[in-house]
Design a protein around this nucleic acid. Structure first.
Length: 142
DNA sequence: GCCAACGTTGGC
DNA sequence: GCCAACGTTGGC
């Protein structure tokens, strides 16, 4: 089982909305590295859900419910483009958000792609990094 | 194959 | 709204 972090601008698609809808298609990814990460996801892989632009924090946990398939949102005039989507379902909200600021100052999370490769929208997280996020979410804010 | 120009992401 | 960082495109 692998761990990942996915980003979304809450104005576009928030974790709250995922909780309400119960499932969503993670599509529209137009970056090769991110796409390749989507394709490596297995059913049941855990995803940290990060709010970019507004919030700047990891707010919840989701998981992969359907592995990569051809992204139906590919523009009509670009059907030769080879993009992928996965389906995700919510697991639970974190007890409190774990902020980017905290991740930057944390010895484990400062090594994560969230800090080191901030523009990548679908990132691999190590088990240790994933567990560190959960641990921080249990504690009181720094 | 290099690199300048351009577009996008995302923090501030 | 600005801009740094990064990815992509296209001319040579």
């Amino acid at each position: 089982m692998k761990h990942w972090l996915i980003k979304s601008e809450p104005f576009v698609y928030s974790f709250d909305r995922l909780l309400v809808e119960g499932s969503t298609r993670w599509d529209g990814i137009r970056n090769y590295q991110a796409r390749n990460n989507l394709r490596e996801m297995k059913k049941g892989d855990l995803l940290l859900f990060y709010h970019s632009n507004e919030g700047l924090a990891i707010v919840g946990i989701a998981k992969v419910s359907k592995t990569a398939y051809a992204d139906p949102s590919v523009e009509a005039d670009a059907k030769q483009k080879d993009w992928s989507a996965v389906d995700v379902v919510p697991v639970r909200r974190l007890k409190r958000p774990v902020t980017l600021k905290e991740a930057r100052t944390d010895p484990i999370l400062s090594e994560s792609a969230l800090v080191k490769n901030s523009r990548l929208s679908v990132q691999p997280f190590t088990k240790a990094q994933y567990e560190r996020v959960l641990e921080l979410a249990k504690s009181t804010p720094a």
